[in-house]
Nucleic acid binder design. Sequence first.
DNA 1: TAGCTGAGTTCGAAAAACGAACGCAAGGGA
DNA 2: TCCCTTGCGTTCGTTTTTCGAACTCAGCTA
Lengths: 149, 149
Amino acid sequence: MSYASFASLPCTLGRPAALLGERWTLLLLRQIFLGTRRFEDFQTTMEISRSVLTDRLSMLLDEGVLKRVPYQADGRTRHEYRLTEKGKDLYPVLMALRTWGEKWMLTEQEDESFTLEHRDCGGGVRAKVECADCGAELTARDVHVTARG
Amino acid sequence: MSYASFASLPCTLGRPAALLGERWTLLLLRQIFLGTRRFEDFQTTMEISRSVLTDRLSMLLDEGVLKRVPYQADGRTRHEYRLTEKGKDLYPVLMALRTWGEKWMLTEQEDESFTLEHRDCGGGVRAKVECADCGAELTARDVHVTARG
DNA sequence: TAGCTGAGTTCGAAAAACGAACGCAAGGGA
DNA sequence: TCCCTTGCGTTCGTTTTTCGAACTCAGCTA
């Protein structure tokens, strides 16, 4: 099958998993959600090689997760990378990762590189899974999977 | 920094993102949530190379996401890979990916490779982000990020 | 004119992934 | 006993990716 052909899997979990499962892509999205927008800033803060950065950015542009937006710098027009609506909708994925990280990947001397709070009430942020019908919070055990084909 | 050193980032989003951002890892977890447990089955259904499969499985064992559980086959003791509690807690991450996939990565002829339903009421499954204090559903715009250091 | 900056591109070396073949332990059948 | 099969890896030579340093290029700025 070779990794890339998962892009055409008839599976709405498999295709996103293959896209975001490419090395650097999740870390790149994290950086974007933290506010980084420019090529140079991605490159220096993540220490990713420039050629791979170019590749991953264009992958996310192709998928419509990012868009290039012009801005002025030194009186010149340049472009920065911003999330599209599709990209912003990845927020729950990142928050689910973080919720998991807070529970299971804490280190002794945690010095979180950022904090999150609900603008309106100052509360913490938490990802969860719920039933679209009855609203109950769900874990893997509460869900029945039916494989097809 | 080199990709692997993200494992020591002081960031509860960065470390999980680096772990699951390794190629094949998310697709492997998908397969596990769909019920696959044995080396041979992973290899044939995913068409991953055997050496990389060995590597990713041991990575997830090391992280405590999977455990090896003995079982009997042909009167012999063998081992299968199962999720630990830590691993089962990744469910929201996978569901967030799927919720996103359903909204943004549908193809014309979608023939979902599995369906999910809440055991108790038969309802659909949905990932979301909420405020841990007031319970409001949150998007990226509702959350204030404060970077540190 | 020369230097600087942001955003890439290029290219040789190193690392990771691929895939076919091999190893091995234990059960089953002839 | 000998051979075949199964499940689960390991090995190894080849192909892809990634790395990282250098190079390019356009348009300020001194």
